[in-house]
Design a protein around this nucleic acid. Sequence first.
DNA 1: CTGTTAGCGCGTTCAG
DNA 2: CTGAACGCGCTAACAG
Lengths: 376, 376
Amino acid sequence: MGDVAAAVGVSKTTISRYLHGEYGYMSDETKARIEAAIKELGYRPNRMAQGLKSTVSNMVGVTIADIGNPFSSQMLKGIQQELRARDIQLLVSDSNNDPAIERANIEALLDAQVDGLIVNTVGGNDAYLTAYCTGGEPKPMVMLDRFVRPLVCDCVATNNHEATVEMLDHVAAQGFSHVVFVTRSDRGVSTRSIRREAVERYLAGRGTSGGGASADGVLGDGTSGDVSLDEGALSGEVLVYDGGVDDLRARLAAVVGERGVGRVCLFANNEESMRDVMEAMSELDGERGHVGVCAFADERWARYSGEGITCLDQQPVLMGRTVAKALLARTYDGGDDEASVAEAIAVDGVVVAARNDGHLLCEVPAQLHIHASTRL
Amino acid sequence: MGDVAAAVGVSKTTISRYLHGEYGYMSDETKARIEAAIKELGYRPNRMAQGLKSTVSNMVGVTIADIGNPFSSQMLKGIQQELRARDIQLLVSDSNNDPAIERANIEALLDAQVDGLIVNTVGGNDAYLTAYCTGGEPKPMVMLDRFVRPLVCDCVATNNHEATVEMLDHVAAQGFSHVVFVTRSDRGVSTRSIRREAVERYLAGRGTSGGGASADGVLGDGTSGDVSLDEGALSGEVLVYDGGVDDLRARLAAVVGERGVGRVCLFANNEESMRDVMEAMSELDGERGHVGVCAFADERWARYSGEGITCLDQQPVLMGRTVAKALLARTYDGGDDEASVAEAIAVDGVVVAARNDGHLLCEVPAQLHIHASTRL
DNA sequence: CTGTTAGCGCGTTCAG
DNA sequence: CTGAACGCGCTAACAG
């Protein structure tokens, strides 16, 4: 900048003004000469120095629980779309599913002077995150896909409860009599526990309204024919596995064997579990064709997996765009006004609830795509 | 920092020394008091200010052609592994497959004072990238998965040629008589053109050594039984499509119809084309079971796609680790010495060639995984 | 063993 | 219409 100033024969101040479009009171001549000199010398302002001065770095940080997950990359895509439009840089950290790494990443991002944070927490950091958000003058934080309870900041997630119910309704309508929700253990991952609770509540509701102890799967093997409209007929259970595919296979085999082929639908919590289910079932050959499968999964892959798997697509790109919008509004647009922030976010079907604790809860609707795997 | 200094009653210099471990000549007492004060005040050094001073920001930038691609996220995972170990921050930009955006991203990353760049170019920016690398004192750049010719900087890629040949050998050995390499048009994407050339060269070579105009597929429908060792029998063609799945389906139907069912193997250039092939073939029902399919694709999905698809896995995580190692060596370890850089990188099967133009060419071996889709 | 000084590249008063 | 001077938070001589 000094070089440019010297070349033109003015002071750095004038250059600075030029750069910020404050040429209201600048002679057209100096303006032209500055422009020429800048092009001539290929000068570009140092954002780092600007940031040091202005206390705004124009950078935001994001920590991702597992960046190797394709779901994560879709969310990043959405985040980038919004940030690019506003010329904000994105610092990305992978937490590798380790809470300690996540904490270190957040600290490092703050040290780098990011203006705000997007956190896709690995779980198990609730105390830390709560302390951060309730501490003194924290930089804005928005949680993505996962969150802590009670809410301590804005949060973007799938409409997990409604989506789960929609899927279970579909499974019931297809005539399955027993659903098995397959998931790895919660380990503090809010998404898993919420879906699991939704399943349990659904089954309990059906059980009581349908009469009898449905948790034991009263209606089962004997029934046949068309029960597609009898939603009350669905029993089910939650299968938590952590021992790998062999463990899963043995337990699935037991369930399928007990319930009888052709009436059971497996509902995988995410793509990882979906793959595990696929692998486990691939060796239970005889029964495979008659066991239903569905999952929270990306439509683009579910569609071509095996026979084509019915899925709930979470629209991760839209989730990314939504979380970025929220953060930008809070960080750069003085977003103390919840209503205006909410308005900017609530598009493309996203539902925004402004809570009385001052935080926003943004739900991105999952979309149900039906394929061959849930045809009985 | 000033606050800490004031609290302890020393100067900022002393604090700075403490932070950098230069307490060789510092009284144990002040050391202890500084430590206490830092903890007390929760002080953390401002990396931005440090960078402004030291001309090293401890940040590197990466531009990704399409970050929504799961392949990209795996590469990012690998990059992160190496950067985390050295406490370097990563600025990520998505080019959205647009050369103009890619250029803007690179400029923006440089403005943010990154110490080095990883570029997964979208193609069509050869002139720009070459100008950058050959211009005055560029920050180190390493290209990832794609590159420009002639090489202007270090480069990490799959061993595309060898891998393609390995796959074609496999297809031939399985007894297929005709291979169709399916790809979208090159559009400056080096990976595609290299693989395509490898296919063409392979087929030409087989043609001449096998005798006769094999491009017409001399050996075809008539032959039957075991030809698994007669590799000379493979003919083939390159199918470039840009018109979407319907276009592709029509052209595939023509090829399969002409060649006769059961002898043709489709070789998709990447996962995207693999999905297109799957979708296109899904409606050519009668023939589907008898057409072979293989692709450059991630083993984890190829394995569960349809019947299980034979694939060349590019080990994207390893590619990311490799490119990060190369950049770190060049950027922070004064990597003017090619030999030492190469040594640090050449592990896990990565082959590093130090060229006489001073650039490193690092090839990460693709791994062939055989599944049902190439069983005749 | 520690403090003083100068300045990294820029923005921002204030005084022309 | 423009410039001088100060400071953002930190580091690196050079003095003690």
